[in-house]
């Protein structure tokens, strides 16, 4: 039987990808960011999951304004890195897990979450930056990945509550898959940041850290935070944090904090990172 063994959360700032790709990860500006992931890389290499269900958002890359799915699952055998306007990142193609993806899709739709099925998709920095942070620069990604894209670009995104409940549905789906697979779920995006308008550059360290505390210990309450609080307190793009709730919903109510990291800034953004494991 497949099972969800751990959850990882991380910001997915494009400048982090550019720093890695251009060999600037050791610069004084970037070193503090990457230092927060040294443990994580070793932990992931030891954990050796078979599949990562990677919750992220597409940044107007695979989805233009022609079609904007709220929740979309990648069922393809592989996903090429996207050209976001400066050429594709020099990273490996992302290998999917079509069998588990099909199973999760059918199970989750039957639990009343109407996922959009994607059989062909380029994946942008939202998906590849977390892989780079957790895996470094391998020739081939060490894990298969099922992309789960959440709309957080066109307001309104799904509510935090809906994301949290989707996480629970995904867990039930994974646990009903017959093959013996070690599956992790990753939630990405955030933390506080605003990329637009005269209010750009907003960072709220106090709110971010309190949100992390509560995501760990009291996810039920965090899942009920309305969108407006994210926008006011964590900036217009801080609303990406609802995606971390999909990850949290797929774990036990009580979790063990294996790793926690927070740093300001990476470009315009507060970087947050968690590794959570079920407490048994």
């Amino acid at each position: 039987m497949a099972r969800i063994t751990a959850g990882v959360a991380t910001s997915h700032v494009p400048a982090i990808g550019a720093a890695i790709d251009n060999g600037r990860a050791g610069d004084p500006y970037w070193r503090p960011v990457f230092s927060g992931y040294e443990f994580s890389k070793q932990w992931l290499a030891a954990a050796k999951p078979d599949v990562v269900l990677l919750v992220y958002n597409d940044h107007a890359t695979a989805f233009s304004l022609d079609i904007v799915p709220t929740f979309a699952i990648g069922c393809a055998p592989d996903f090429p890195p996207a050209d976001e306007g400066w050429g594709p990142r020099p990273v490996p193609r992302v290998e999917g897990h079509p069998e588990l993806a099909a199973h999760v899709t059918q199970s989750v739709i039957q639990q009343d979450f109407d996922l959009t099925i994607i059989n062909k998709m380029d994946v942008d920095h939202g998906l590849t930056v977390p892989l780079s942070l957790m895996c470094g620069q391998p020739e081939r990604w060490p894990v298969r990945v099922i992309p789960l894209a959440v709309n957080v670009v066109l307001y309104p995104p799904p509510s935090g509550r809906r994301c949290y409940e989707l996480g629970k549905a995904i867990r039930r789906a994974v646990e009903s898959f017959d093959d013996d697979l070690d599956v992790q779920i990753w939630g990405t995006g955030g933390m506080s940041h605003q990329l637009q308008g005269p209010r750009a550059g907003l960072i709220n360290q106090e709110w971010d850290n309190r949100w992390l505390d509560r995501l760990i210990d009291d996810p039920e309450t965090v899942s009920r935070i309305p969108h407006i609080e994210y926008v006011r307190e964590a900036g217009s793009e801080g609303i990406e944090l609802v995606m971390w709730l999909v990850m949290r919903g797929a774990l036990d109510p009580r979790v063990r904090v294996t790793h926690r990291f927070y740093h300001v800034p990476a470009s315009n953004t507060a970087v947050g990172h968690l590794i959570l494991e079920n407490d048994g």
Partner: peptide, 20 residues
Amino acid sequence: AKLFSTDGRSFQYTAASMTG
């Protein structure tokens, strides 16, 4: 972002330009 990337500009450059 596709426009400012075409110009070779970053998110931080563009964000700063919006703040005055």
